[in-house]
């Protein structure tokens, strides 16, 4: 007889709820999403869970497993043998039902970011080493686990002051593109709230795509904001460079 594992799954909606325990048989290679599907098929047909690809590519099944933001489909159950597996929806966003939370705020934020604006006419040729850097950011699957773990959004609910790590990655993707002609540095310094981030790196720790969000996106963007707004020497050189055309700094 196969080993059983106990799942404690949050059941409820915006009005409240509680964790309910379910026992499922553990089979080799089983991930948490498999177990949730077992529960859904045999014990609680009304259990709500968002999922799609079951291959860690769509970013749909984000949740919190034993207090850690993770993808349900990428978390193996044999890591939890002998423990109760607590499964909760993402805490940063409003809950819709059970494990499904409302992530629509993220799509509203996405609309505020100016789209890619090529500096030269397409099609253009680029060297691979020029685009290696931004290709890391293309790996993002928009699971929003980084948004979920970010304490600025999670503990301080500062959604009106900070776009969150996901959108710092998005802006870095555009800003560091070798053919980008737009300038999002003023957006970062003001509306996007880059300096609300205090670089505690939790976003990097939970990213299932292993994007080095803090080191490769947020910190380089902070340095670019410092270049433009904080560095008096660079401002001086910029003024000298721009003075013949009377452009402002």
């Amino acid at each position: 007889m196969s080993e059983e594992i106990v799942l404690s799954i949050y059941r409820g909606d915006a009005d409240g709820g509680q964790e309910v325990e379910y026992s499922v048989p553990l089979t080799p290679g089983m991930v948490v999403l498999d177990a949730v599907h077992q529960v859904q098929a045999h014990q609680a047909q009304d259990l709500a869970v968002r999922w799609n690809c079951k291959a860690a590519h769509c970013g749909s099944c984000s949740a919190e497993i034993n207090g850690r933001p993770k993808l349900l489909c990428k978390t193996r159950l044999d890591d939890y043998v002998g423990q109760t597996v607590h499964i909760l929806p993402m805490q940063t966003f409003p809950i819709i039902k059970d494990l499904v939370s409302d992530v629509s705020w993220n799509y509203e934020v996405a609309k505020k970011i100016p789209a890619f604006k090529p500096a030269t006419a397409v099609p253009f040729r680029m060297q691979q080493f020029d685009v290696d850097r931004v290709q890391e950011f293309h790996h993002c699957i928009e699971c929003f686990l980084c948004q979920d773990v970010c304490h600025v959004l999670r503990d301080h609910d500062a959604k009106d002051e900070y776009f969150g790590p996901r959108f710092m990655v998005k802006i870095a993707e555009y800003e560091m593109h070798p053919r980008e002609g737009g300038d999002r540095i003023p957006l970062l310094a003001h509306e996007a709230g880059l300096n609300m981030c205090n670089v505690t790196k939790c976003c990097t720790e939970v990213c299932p795509q292993h994007i080095r969000i803090t080191d490769n996106a947020i910190i380089p963007l902070k340095e670019r904001v410092a270049d433009q707004y904080w560095d008096p020497l660079r401002a001086l050189f910029r003024r000298k460079k721009e003075s013949p055309t009377n452009q402002s700094v």
Partner: peptide
């Protein structure tokens, strides 16, 4: 701010407005 990832901040933080690195002295980190 925070002590660990997905670990709730102390209750005392709730009464204070979080400003990250926007205000003195942390803005000097720029």
């Amino acid at each position: 701010h925070p002590a660990g990832c997905a670990v709730s901040e102390p209750a005392s933080h709730k009464n204070k407005r979080y400003t990250g690195e926007r205000r003195f002295p942390f803005n000097l980190n720029n």
